[in-house]
């Protein structure tokens, strides 16, 4: 669908299935940026490593590691060690996100100033700078 539809100037944000299944089927030049969301856990790093290798192999576009649920410098170091040169954005572990999830509301609406939300605002601005 991503490859066949005409989106014009619209920004398209796709939330893919967990794992790398969809990534294996994604054609080249379909996306501009691949954001690999990774937690500082061995399981998540393992999946992230495969996703990064695949995105590189297929030259899918700019690659960013979104390091999620980061609790401190140690977590960031662990991810930097795993992903080396890849651009990395850290999003802190934040109870505001957990709370929004429970209530089924968008964190951006209910907790715009929460640290995790602020980190994501920064990420969005770096990808699509506001004119």
């Amino acid at each position: 669908m991503l490859g066949s539809a005409e989106f014009g100037d619209a920004v398209v944000v796709a939330d893919l299935e967990a794992g790398i299944g969809t990534l294996t089927r994604l054609g080249d030049e379909v996306v501009d940026v691949v954001l690999a969301v990774v937690e500082p856990t061995p399981k998540s790093i393992e999946v992230g490593t495969r996703a990064v290798a695949l995105a590189r192999e297929k030259s899918l576009g700019r690659l960013v590691i979104v390091a999620n649920r980061v609790r401190g410098a140690e977590d960031v170091e662990r991810l930097v060690a795993a992903f080396g040169e890849v651009e990395l954005v850290a999003v802190p572990d934040d109870p505001a996100i957990v709370d929004a999830e429970r209530r089924g509301v968008a964190p951006l609406d209910t907790a715009p100033d929460a640290p995790a939300v602020q980190a994501l605002v920064g990420l969005a601005e770096s990808l699509a700078p506001v004119a």
Partner: peptide, 16 residues
């Protein structure tokens, strides 16, 4: 049957 590692860690099997 998940093609991504998950259960191995949670059982404590030393393979991925």
């Amino acid at each position: 049957s998940d093609p991504m590692p998950g259960l191995a860690f949670s059982v404590g099997v030393p393979v991925t």
